[in-house]
């Protein structure tokens, strides 16, 4: 290599190699650790399993009723029973609607006709959030989206509920 063509000095070359070797070592050490750390992000989310909530379809009326049931929750190495709740009723077409009671504003718990001032509505006591019977938020109250609906199916006349799915805002 002729002198005038030499663009990389010996010192620079050594520095580049040093960076490369250092990078290799850092990568070798950190790659498995970072993969381990981000593992929860990469785990495929489990599709909701349907759980028998202990309510016969024939007992569902057109008035929303609150039901509570337990699901098995596996949290890493910790397994537990976690309580779930829903407001269930039949609409005019006879279809079953199961609404999550979690307010879309700040996560308080709503209840059917929770306030005497607002009959035929879901009411959230925290910030006076309101939803109509189909779970759609009443405009000009704090919530910005309708209540989540549970995935549902009916088997042997019993209601099975799955995951709560968010809906688009009104």
């Amino acid at each position: 290599m002729s002198e005038d063509k030499q663009q990389v000095s010996r010192r620079q070359f050594l520095n580049y190699t040093l960076t490369g070797v250092g990078g290799f070592m850092a990568a070798g050490i950190l790659a498995p650790m970072l993969r381990m750390a981000i593992d929860p992000v990469l785990k495929p989310s489990k599709s909701g399993e349907f759980v028998n909530v202990g309510l016969a379809v024939e007992d569902i009326t057109t008035t929303p009723q609150r039901i509570d049931w337990k699901v098995d929750q596996v949290d890493g190495w910790y397994e537990s029973k976690v309580g779930r709740a829903a407001w269930v009723y039949k609409d005019e077409n006879g279809d079953i609607i199961a609404l999550s009671p979690i307010c879309k504003h700040l996560g308080c718990v709503v209840s059917w006709e929770g306030s005497e001032q607002f009959p035929n509505q879901f009411y959230c006591p925290c910030h006076d959030g309101r939803y109509t019977k189909d779970g759609v938020n009443v405009p000009n109250t704090p919530p910005t989206a309708p209540l989540d609906t549970y995935q549902q199916k009916v088997e042997n006349g019993m209601l099975y509920l799955g995951k709560a799915v968010p809906r688009k805002g009104a």
């Binding site: 650790m33 381990m36 990469l42």
Partner: peptide, 9 residues
Amino acid sequence: TEVAHGQIV
């Protein structure tokens, strides 16, 4: 057993 690369770390 469950975490990717947990065995290695």
